[in-house]
Nucleic acid binder design. Sequence first.
DNA 1: AACCTTTTATGAAAGGTTTTACCGGAGCGA
DNA 2: TCGCTCCGGTAAAACCTTTCATAAAAGGTT
Lengths: 376, 376
Amino acid sequence: MKGFTGAMGEGVRRVTIHDVAGKAGVSTAAVSHAFNDPERLRATTVTRILDAARDLGYAPNPHARALHSQRVGVLGVLFPQPIATVFANPFFASFLEGIGSVTDERGIGLLTVTPLGGSLERAIAAAPVDGFVIIGLDERHAEVAPLRKRGVPFVVVDGDAETASSVNVDDEGGAYAAANLLLEHGHRDILVLTFHAPPEELAKDLGVRGRRLRGYRRAFVDHAVALDDDAVVRTFVTLEGGDMAFAKAWAEGARPTAVLAASDIMAIGAMRAAKRLGLRIPEDLEVIGFDDIPLAAASDPALTTIHQPIADKGRVATRLLIRELDEGGPRERIVLPTELLLRESTRAASKKSRTQRVAKGGTEREGKRILKAAAH
Amino acid sequence: MKGFTGAMGEGVRRVTIHDVAGKAGVSTAAVSHAFNDPERLRATTVTRILDAARDLGYAPNPHARALHSQRVGVLGVLFPQPIATVFANPFFASFLEGIGSVTDERGIGLLTVTPLGGSLERAIAAAPVDGFVIIGLDERHAEVAPLRKRGVPFVVVDGDAETASSVNVDDEGGAYAAANLLLEHGHRDILVLTFHAPPEELAKDLGVRGRRLRGYRRAFVDHAVALDDDAVVRTFVTLEGGDMAFAKAWAEGARPTAVLAASDIMAIGAMRAAKRLGLRIPEDLEVIGFDDIPLAAASDPALTTIHQPIADKGRVATRLLIRELDEGGPRERIVLPTELLLRESTRAASKKSRTQRVAKGGTEREGKRILKAAAH
DNA sequence: AACCTTTTATGAAAGGTTTTACCGGAGCGA
DNA sequence: TCGCTCCGGTAAAACCTTTCATAAAAGGTT
């Protein structure tokens, strides 16, 4: 860890508990008590101390406090990618919003932790936090393992964990519903857009990518439709990635009548490419995404997609972590429901409500029930 | 500060430098040296210590390190509002992206700090950071003043500061350009949407709001057009705020031919209301925003606006702060340029490039030059 | 072998807080 | 008056690391 090396701005030594004790004519212990357990002291003494503290502008040193209590009141959110890309991604924005709503109400700080000089492990070691929410990284990941050893509690989101709590959404069920919709519409030539992943995940269809792909595949099997390997394309989780992937497939002669994208942003990219090629959506091409990012509703046409409760994932994970920190609560595996959201990029099949539930999903309320049920 | 109270997850006492020293048969000082200044030790000793450390899974305690060195390697970003609203706001997302790009490359952590139980002051006191980037808060703000006393360096963004560096954009110039465009298009009945602000700022037209309003007013004066007080409406910086404000003005009989909004999101809200009322944009109503958030380009019609380099503000502020921390660099006042971006919510006036520069603005490169120039 | 100079390693202090154990005194009942 | 409890407060240890001054070891000279 490099960080800063130079000297402090001004030479103003910070006022410490000793200064306050001196001014108030008491011991440092008394000052500490005045702040943390005023009952133990005579009322007059307390006010005398508090007055002195205010005059001096005293505030307890967070580092000293943390060192002693082994608690800083800060939670780390561990991302596998540079922070700039994190904040540029609306998915993470929603996720952080969920986490933030909990930390805020508990008066806890939020530290974003990203690879330090390429190494997540170093970043983890240097982070002054009480626990981690880990997103999109498997517990088995080499960089994460040391956490266990250090005894720092963590919760895994969008990943599997044996030794820690985990929060996931029903990726497979959502993917099944998405593929099922297109197959029911009669499509037989569907382009599947999925994303890049580390080799070990690819090999075993692990992680989010694997689960979604499994859902797609299961629907194809149930409809007795073959899913050609050529029809499954891996690309980047960006608008450009989706655009390129569709354009490339088209250029190579593919003529899909529908697109099944494992992420909204790729779906929107594919729509852009399709429109450029003169295709009408949904008349010539039906498109369905995954995630329901804010842009999905605003895109043209509005994107039919699988909604997943992104902010809720953050909220649930954070509550779990805090409980583990506070009470050493039990490990849990939470799976939140997903939901099919019919918008304009697919043809209306019935005159039912535009928002219909996925068979395997459920309402948000059910999601909370799942959480509660699992809590015992 | 409440935070956690309970016991640590497992009883596994963390491995300390003493454990490593014991295992390697050396003193704790030697272990410290092995990590921080290996040259001082014999090579064989170093490897022996490092091996022991690895076996034990040792990592230096960040809190102890921070306490001793008076440095944690974490920067705080101070927001005047709950964290959930922060991450929900694309403006802040861009801003954080800029900050993050710098902290990341320096291996520094990023802590978001928001009011703790309603009090920013308490949040500030409890935050384990080396310095703050303060956004949208005046240095004179009662909650911020204690920072000075505590000797924690900070940089103010979108606010004025006497005793600290500040980073702002040319709000007034941008606003002038926006108003000027509409006035040149011949509009005489313009609805101005501005936002709520604390009373003291309102009174003196301080802060971002004041500067933008000043720019609008100056243009009106230059065009010898009166700006009626009724035509300046204060509302919330949300889509709903802009929608409501326009609808209300309309309901009260106002029939503006153009809208001058001090923020994109309000402009988009106003467009929504106008479309609902059957107005065509830009034929019946020209609209211009401010900020150039991502949504501005995606809205329908695409919003003409004043671009401000949001991410750059974050980057510049962070570099300034780090320099002050490292070298105690001098205070600076940076003003970054703004830029008029012509899109679809205003009528095309000429066949020139769709992006044209504001007289008082400049390119990004010029922005950097300003920074550099000011650095001496 | 004695002495000097480097090199290598250590002891102890410092950094600021919280907390445990304890102490002196006051009040009270016997 | 003795002995007990309770109150208000304090001393000192503990949290873990880094660093300064210094000691010990190693190596080289005479």
